[in-house]
Simulated assay, not measured.
Amino acid sequence: MTILRVLGSAAGGGFPQWNCNCRNCDGVRRGTLRATPRTQSSIALGDGYQNWIIVNASPDILAQLRASPALQPARAPRDTSIVGVILIDAQIDHVTGLLMLREHRRPLPVYASAAVLSDLSTAFPLTRMLSHYCGLDTRVLALDGSAFAVPQLDAVELTAVPLESKAPPYSPSRNAHRIGDNIGLRIVDRQSGRRAFYAPGLARIESHVFEELSVADVVLVDGTCWTNDEMLALGFSTKTAADMGHLAQSGPGGMIETLDRLPAARKVLIHINNTNPILDEDSPQRHELEAHGIEVAYDGMEIAL
């Protein structure tokens, strides 16, 4: 049985964000808001014992590992159960954690698209930096629908699914879409046949993405913003959610409307921005999600496939 564990459920900056005093961040610090702090978006896939794949390595990875004892089996003086890292994109909040894993005793297996590996060898040269430490054993993900497995956890079948979002702001390709700048991940437990689809960044529900969502038993998808103008209305940004590569939850064509069309047993929002009112467990927006049967991911959440 494959275990999907949410290591971090917030968008970049976490919740509360260190420099933010929006209603959510201020309220959770003061204890006046019923909300749970969250670290930055990442999940782990494992057999529940000694082999785990990390999907996205957030800047909070050390705290996430401390909160997940199964990922430190302590079989030797230096040990880990991490057998590989898969990168969904090259966003800072999804790749900087690789620097925190520099003490790995051998080159760390990292699976990513050619576009992501290009950014990580040029604009943000993590591959070059880490060559002076453990090094990275990079594996280019195929984007043609072919499945792959990570050695030591081959009971999990994985498929990279190209999707529309945005390359990181630092990338030369920020405004020039490349296939592979962002992917979703199809996750299939070979024994049970159950599948999940993970896509923390979604700008648009393309037809092939909707097909993936439609056949998944569990979907974990972009929960960044409630409204498209959320950051604008609060005066925190000059960009809409769409400008940043995210589909808002509410409104015509939004994520709620899409999720309502799916037969999936579990529909979960992840990568939640600190400004999103769904973080307030007493908010009308949170109650609206509950009425639609949509869950909000939290750090430590586990789903069995």
Rank of each mutant, 00 (worst) to 15 (best):
I43D: 10
I43A: 09
I43Q: 10
A44E: 01
A44T: 01
L45Y: 04
G46T: 00
D47T: 01
G48A: 02
G48H: 01
G48L: 01
Y49T: 09
Q50M: 08
Q50N: 15
Q50A: 15
Q50R: 15
N51S: 07
N51K: 03
W52L: 00
I53K: 00
I53H: 00
I54A: 11
I54E: 10
V55D: 02
N56P: 11
A57W: 12
S58G: 11
P59Q: 07
P59R: 11
I61Q: 07
I61H: 05
L62M: 12
A63D: 15
Q64I: 03
Q64D: 07
Q64E: 09
Q64C: 09
Q64G: 03
Q64N: 04
A67S: 07
A67H: 06
S68A: 11
P69G: 08
P69Y: 08
A70W: 10
A70N: 06
A70V: 08
L71C: 08
L71A: 08
P73L: 05
A74I: 10
A74R: 12
R75V: 08
R75E: 12
A76V: 05
A76H: 10
R78W: 14
R78C: 14
R78D: 12
D79Y: 07
D79P: 12
S81F: 04
I82K: 01
V83I: 07
V83P: 01
V83S: 02
G84E: 01
V85Y: 02
V85R: 03
I86Y: 01
I86E: 00
I86T: 02
L87D: 13
I88S: 10
D89W: 06
A90M: 09
A90Y: 05
I92N: 12
I92P: 14
D93M: 13
H94V: 08
H94S: 09
T96R: 14
T96L: 13
L98F: 07
L99K: 09
L99V: 10
M100S: 15
M100A: 15
L101E: 14
L101H: 15
R102C: 13
R102L: 14
R102K: 15
E103H: 15
E103D: 15
E103F: 10
H104T: 14
H104M: 15
R105E: 15
R105P: 13
L108N: 04
L108M: 05
L108F: 03
P109K: 11
V110M: 11
V110L: 13
V110F: 09
Y111M: 08
Y111V: 05
A114S: 15
A115Q: 10
A115F: 06
V116C: 06
L117H: 12
L117M: 13
S118W: 12
D119C: 02
S121L: 01
T122Q: 13
T122G: 06
T122I: 06
T122M: 06
A123V: 01
F124K: 04
F124T: 06
P125L: 02
T127G: 04
R128I: 09
M129K: 03
M129E: 06
L130V: 04
S131W: 00
H132S: 05
H132P: 03
Y133V: 00
Y133W: 09
C134H: 06
C134S: 12
C134T: 08
G135I: 02
L136V: 05
L136E: 07
D137N: 14
R139M: 05
